[in-house]
């Protein structure tokens, strides 16, 4: 039985109860990527449905970060297809704009803009990309900060916030663009232990509200509770995929078993 942060028990995630959508919002076919002579992705084929929460795990260098960075073209894939919400990701600039506006990303290093206030961090893209009016963007910023639990920090600078607060601001900043998909690249790896929970709580709430999320993380607790699906990456390939129960009770591959034994 899964326990939520509120202490109430809920039933385990179940595709049958319609939580996960029917459409594939991300389709990857045989995606490969090289860095010089080193092949980071050796042919990733996966489909991710709307409102699905996918957790990606694997040893370092396995390509998990590279993979999610190809989804919003921070890295260019060398062969194969990536289709996001029906639009193919290629050199076409219009497609790229559309896709980037549908995907939000949260980084390990937060990457908040240090010379801008929290408010401006969030409203910057709203003004310049969505051309929102100042009043509207500020309202949106305030409501998002409320949602991640730190409305009072709105006029502070990032350096004045703790790591956990900064990451929550980063999440709010990404959410401000109203994305359909959220990518998380090891969001809690740079945080001190006592601040991890506050960020995971926000991510949990996000998952429950129906956001499509792809999360690279080592946080097993969160993964067990929130994930609809696990992907285990090793050496540029998806070695094993399945439900959390499958992974924790009955992993098939040797490499998976080895990895789990090291981190559990």
């Amino acid at each position: 039985m899964a326990e939520t942060t509120n202490g109430e028990a809920t039933a385990p995630r179940d595709k049958a109860d319609g939580r996960v959508g029917a459409n594939d919002i991300i389709i990857c076919r045989d995606v490969k990527k090289w860095f010089g002579d080193f092949q980071a992705l050796r042919g990733i084929t996966i489909s991710i449905k709307e409102r699905e929460v996918v957790v990606i795990m694997g040893p370092s260098g396995s390509g998990k970060s590279t993979f999610i960075r190809t989804l919003n073209r921070l890295e260019e894939h060398d062969s194969g297809q990536i289709i996001i919400d029906g639009v193919e990701l290629n050199n076409d600039l219009r497609n790229l704009e559309k896709i980037r506006s549908e995907i939000g990303m949260v980084f390990q290093q937060f990457n908040l803009f240090p010379h801008l206030t929290v408010r401006r961090n969030i409203t910057l893209a709203l003004s310049h990309v969505r051309h929102m009016r100042k009043k509207d963007s500020t309202e949106l910023a305030e409501s998002l900060l409320e949602r991640v639990g730190i409305p009072e920090q709105i006029d502070k600078f990032p350096a004045q916030l703790s790591g956990g607060q900064q990451q929550r601001v980063a999440i709010a900043r990404a959410l401000a663009m109203q994305p359909r998909i959220m990518l998380f690249d090891e969001p809690t790896s740079a945080l001190d232990p006592e601040m991890i929970k506050e960020v995971l709580d926000v991510m949990m709430e996000l998952a429950e509200s129906g956001m499509t999320m792809i999360v690279v993380t080592h946080e097993m607790g969160f993964a067990k509770e929130a994930a609809d699906r696990f992907l285990f990456f090793d050496e540029g390939l998806i070695v094993e995929e399945g439900t959390p129960e499958h992974f924790f009770t009955n992993p098939q591959e040797e490499r998976t078993k080895l990895f789990l034994s090291q981190i559990l």
């Binding site: 919003n72 921070l74 980037r100 995907i103 290093q109 990457n111 908040l112 803009f113 910057l124």
Partner: peptide
């Protein structure tokens, strides 16, 4: 830091 550019790109700037 390179991450600044990446975050900005991810926001669509």
């Amino acid at each position: 830091p390179k991450g600044q550019v990446e975050a900005a790109k991810a926001l669509g700037l």
